[in-house]
Write a protein that binds this DNA or RNA. Structure first.
Lengths: 364, 364
DNA sequence: TTGCAAGATATGTACGGACAAAAAACGTGG
DNA sequence: CCACGTTTTTTGTCCGTACATATCTTGCAA
């Protein structure tokens, strides 16, 4: 009591006990009177504590009956289910397609969706999660932000877990995050596929550019390097450009970025494996403006099969992301989680889409 | 007290007085002690009442200082601004473009956006509004649902108004809704433009299909008919198909819809003005499958300049919706409203985009 | 066994009082 | 006039009590 008010202490203890599942039978096990005795406080204090739990949606109070712990599907009857979806972007790149897949499943099931974007900003993610917490969502689909770094918002995810709100990560996830399942592409495997493709088409001085502040990029890079090593090719550091999101919009203007482009212009590599199609497309443009002939003078392979892939010139050879199907799978999985089932994580396989940007080459 | 508990009565009175602006100076004017005297209740009861107002975000309590009424920009310091966006659809039609316009402005200003779709269902709209209310948004952009009918959710909009949460309607709005401004296309004017275009190109037996459960459609229809009348053309009822959203997906299979299509096949009209490009496109397909040659045998004009317009064959002549620019304008307006300014409603003008579906015709 | 009424049990409302802690107002001395 | 400590004001926490009201349980009677 010297530090924290009693009602908070009581609330915390009860919160913890609920999280541990001590009250599986339905009722909070204790009436206000029993709690009063147990903690040796007044009934008002007990009520104040329980009020907090009620705000959090952890318990329901019924006059004349008792206080009940909620588990499982939150809203008992009336009222629609609400699902929150948190992605890095909404209207860019392949996200409209993924969201569309999610949306179609949710709306078919009469579930209301709430969509927010983090723009790869951890603070924004925090702010959105806070809103979701007191907005009483019944489930959450999250694309992790900066997942290769320390997870600043772990406390909020813990609170979601305490409230039995199912969370499903997609595309990218925080490793070791309390048994929350994820649906992601097999990024490590994708990196290996890309490398194998590059090698089998005769390239011998491969380069690469990867975003490394999220798991996706790190895994793609790892798979890429492992497969290269297995093929007997080692890649010097200066044929690799590693960057993080801050530089997304202007990686070309960083010292490393400029140096990398210069080396490519000097033909120090014969092909580039790119983190995704957006970067592949913009890098191709830069080199073409400098007069390089593509794909003859340099091969390219990307990830995701975004719109750019079909529209760019030469058309991009790329690993195809299932997008709509991916979104649908994610949504279906979350709905099952909401209805109480345990779901496993999924790694989806890439399928190579061969276009024009990575032609077979002769000895150079 | 015979009916409602005292603390609710007190809360309601205070809520009303706050809404009327009685406490413009900052403090609630009354301390808990003063309120206790005024209402002749105990201090606990007063506190219980104020707690409700605090939940609603109407007041802030500061220990040792007093209870203050919040007006204007909600979150005082820390914490990002949150804006809710409610549209009828998200990933369909022109909505991705509009949302993109909104999103770019909001994210440039560091504002977090939360996006939800009603699918033109008033109950869903209600459910979303409830979430927005206890999610503490700082502003709301709403595309009204079924705006030509009674507004079932007026109570919720009133509560938003009570809490000083600015609401801006777009595309479609509820007439007479407490001074909440709107940004819409000039639908009446658009109807007239379409009619004028049809007439000036020589068509003399014009038909039309319009959705009439929202204001947009009603206004477009009204403008269309008025301009026709002004041009000396009266349109018999059976050359018009009026429908509502329920039938959106399958208007072709309703008795009226089938009858309408049959009349078109018998060439009882020489052109059709369509509620929007989606309907225009699908109607064109139906007639073409029946062997009709377009645009020679029947002219078409739509609204919105959606993707279909460019992709269909023949390419659609249509009235262009500004989409991204529209979204940006809406977002900028709402941000100004959040920072306290009063904003006027806007009717944006259409611009005609001439493609292939409404060619000039000779006397028939 | 069923139906209903009375009683027991639980939460909801309301009152009173007391002290704690933070902020604001005041007063005093420099 | 300012600085600093003291007092006052105001909200926060906590206790005890009483009664209201909804729900559940029990037991009696048909």
């Amino acid at each position: 009591m010297a530090e924290q008010p009693k009602y908070l202490q009581v609330a915390d203890i009860l919160r913890k006990e609920i999280a541990e599942g001590k009250f599986r039978d339905g009722q909070t096990l204790m009436t206000e009177e029993e709690l009063r005795m147990r903690f040796n406080v007044s009934r008002q204090t007990v009520r104040q504590a329980i009020a907090l739990l009620e705000d959090d949606g952890l318990v329901d109070r019924r006059r004349g009956s008792g206080t009940y712990v909620r588990h499982g599907p939150r809203r008992r009857m009336q009222g629609t289910l609400h699902v929150g979806v948190i992605t890095t972007y909404i209207t860019d790149y392949i996200f409209p397609n993924i969201v569309s897949g999610i949306e179609s499943v949710l709306s078919d099931n009469g579930v209301v969706m709430t969509l927010s974007a983090t723009y790869n900003n951890v603070k924004t993610e925090r702010s959105i999660l806070e809103r979701m917490l007191d907005g009483q969502v019944d489930g959450l689909i999250v694309e992790g932000t900066r997942t290769a770094r320390e997870n600043e918002n772990e406390d909020l995810y813990r609170r979601l877990a305490e409230r039995n709100i199912p969370v499903l990560f997609m595309n990218s996830y925080y490793p070791g995050m309390m048994n929350m399942p994820h649906v992601v592409m097999d990024d490590y495997g994708g990196g290996r596929i890309a490398a194998r493709e590059v090698l089998s088409r005769g390239y011998r001085r491969p380069g690469g550019m990867f975003k490394v502040d999220d798991l996706q990029g790190k895994e793609r890079l790892k798979g890429f390097l492992d497969e290269m090593r297995a093929g007997g090719i080692s890649i010097p550091d200066d044929r690799l450009l590693l960057f993080s999101t801050e530089e997304r919009m202007n990686w070309q203007s960083t010292p490393e970025g400029r140096a990398f482009v210069e080396r490519l212009k000097r033909r120090e590599a014969d092909c580039v494996t790119c983190y995704n199609d957006a970067f592949a497309s913009s890098l191709m443009n830069i080199l073409q403006q400098d007069g390089m002939k593509l794909p003859e003078e340099m091969g390219f392979i990307g990830f995701d099969n975004a719109i750019y892939a079909e529209l760019s010139n030469p058309k991009l050879t790329t690993l195809g992301h299932p997008k709509e199907a991916f979104g649908s799978l994610v949504a279906e999985k979350l709905l099952r989680m909401i209805s109480g089932e345990r779901e496993r994580s999924v790694n989806m396989a890439w399928n190579l889409i061969e276009r024009e940007s990575l032609p077979r080459v002769e000895r150079r």
